Deep mutational scan, measured.
Amino acid sequence: MGFKLLSKLLVYLTASIMAIASPLAFSVDSSGEYPTVSEIPVGEVRLYQIADGVWSHIATQSFDGAVYPSNGLIVRDGDELLLIDTAWGAKNTAALLAEIEKQIGLPVTRAVSTHFHDDRVGGVDVLRAAGVATYASPSTRRLAEVEGNEIPTHSLEGLSSSGDAVRFGPVELFYPGAAHSTDNLIVYVPSASVLYGGCAIYELSRTSAGNVADADLAEWPTSIERIQQHYPEAQFVIPGHGLPGGLDLLKHTTNVVKAHTNRSVVE
């Protein structure tokens, strides 16, 4: 069995187990497998329904001669939608809004960016022009300005110390501490036991640490421990890039980060 097929099978099995364990909360999309990078042309966006009122959005972007996937989250909030992270750029984010209108038909009224990198804030200006209120932590807003990236308009308070959590509509926002970046936030959907790890969490097929220019490698494993301790009931975990899975993604990420750190020390 090929690795790609095995990865998709694991996603399907995880979703099936969740649907059985929580039949009222989960209505997993039966329309197909989780979209992969090879299936999404740059400039297009796919939506994948995880649970009743919960979707991931998947886009792709060219970077350094390669094409990478990027995940975000959409959560229903009454007759409105909360968006977590842009679709990595203005063109993708405009396509995301169009796809949401086509498939869901509810307005996106608020959006949260989970850290300051372009795959999370690139497209904020498109959201703002569409009347979406954009939010991020003060740290993310400051770092985005320093980096020359787009800056969300509103500040999220109460997320300055490791372990801080605040309720934001249908989700809980959690600051686990520094990891992929010093400002990275985690998003949890309690009604569906869905954990969105953003770039602080890796997919299972990833074996290298990737972009760690703004990471705190020493603190990252401790931050992941905080996530595990705060959300032990999480059933569906979405990484910032690639295929979702279960809580095993947290341990896998820790292993990859520690291996990278150990290699760096040896070198």
Results as ranks from 00 to 15, higher is better:
residue 2 G to P: 08
residue 2 G to H: 14
residue 4 K to N: 03
residue 7 S to R: 10
residue 12 Y to I: 15
residue 15 A to K: 05
residue 16 S to Q: 04
residue 16 S to K: 15
residue 18 M to N: 02
residue 25 A to P: 05
residue 26 F to P: 15
residue 33 E to V: 09
residue 38 S to G: 10
residue 39 E to S: 10
residue 39 E to N: 03
residue 43 G to P: 03
residue 43 G to C: 03
residue 46 R to V: 14
residue 47 L to P: 02
residue 47 L to R: 02
residue 50 I to F: 08
residue 59 A to P: 02
residue 59 A to N: 13
residue 60 T to A: 08
residue 62 S to C: 06
residue 63 F to W: 09
residue 68 Y to I: 09
residue 70 S to E: 12
residue 71 N to I: 04
residue 71 N to P: 00
residue 73 L to M: 15
residue 84 I to K: 01
residue 88 W to D: 03
residue 96 L to T: 13
residue 100 I to K: 02
residue 101 E to K: 03
residue 102 K to A: 12
residue 106 L to K: 08
residue 107 P to N: 11
residue 109 T to K: 08
residue 118 D to R: 05
residue 119 D to Q: 01
residue 123 G to H: 01
residue 123 G to Y: 01
residue 124 V to I: 15
residue 125 D to E: 10
residue 130 A to G: 13
residue 130 A to E: 05
residue 135 Y to A: 05
residue 135 Y to I: 09
residue 136 A to E: 01
residue 140 T to D: 01
residue 142 R to D: 15
residue 143 L to E: 09
residue 145 E to P: 04
residue 145 E to S: 07
residue 147 E to K: 12
residue 148 G to I: 06
residue 148 G to H: 03
residue 150 E to S: 15
residue 151 I to Q: 02
residue 151 I to W: 08
residue 153 T to A: 06
residue 153 T to G: 09
residue 156 L to M: 07
residue 156 L to R: 02
residue 157 E to Y: 03
residue 158 G to P: 04
residue 165 A to T: 13
residue 169 G to K: 10
residue 170 P to T: 08
residue 170 P to S: 12
residue 170 P to I: 15
residue 174 F to V: 08
residue 174 F to M: 15
residue 174 F to P: 01
residue 176 P to I: 09
residue 176 P to A: 03
residue 176 P to V: 03
residue 177 G to I: 01
residue 180 H to D: 00
residue 180 H to G: 00
residue 180 H to K: 00
residue 183 D to C: 00
residue 188 Y to C: 00
residue 189 V to Y: 05
residue 193 S to W: 12
residue 194 V to C: 04
residue 195 L to G: 00
residue 199 C to L: 01
residue 202 Y to W: 09
residue 203 E to D: 01
residue 204 L to F: 08
residue 208 S to P: 10
residue 209 A to P: 03
residue 209 A to L: 10
residue 209 A to E: 08
residue 209 A to G: 10
residue 210 G to T: 04
residue 211 N to C: 11
residue 215 A to G: 09
residue 217 L to S: 13
residue 218 A to L: 12
residue 219 E to Y: 15
residue 221 P to H: 05
residue 227 I to V: 06
residue 228 Q to W: 11
residue 230 H to C: 13
residue 232 P to V: 09
residue 233 E to C: 13
residue 234 A to I: 02
residue 238 I to H: 15
residue 239 P to Y: 00
residue 239 P to C: 02
residue 243 L to Y: 15
residue 245 G to V: 01
residue 246 G to T: 07
residue 246 G to R: 04
residue 247 L to R: 10
residue 251 K to R: 06
residue 252 H to K: 14
residue 254 T to M: 06
residue 254 T to V: 10
residue 254 T to C: 11
residue 255 N to S: 09
residue 256 V to K: 11
residue 258 K to E: 13
residue 258 K to Q: 05
residue 258 K to V: 09
residue 263 R to E: 11
residue 267 E to T: 10
residue 267 E to N: 02
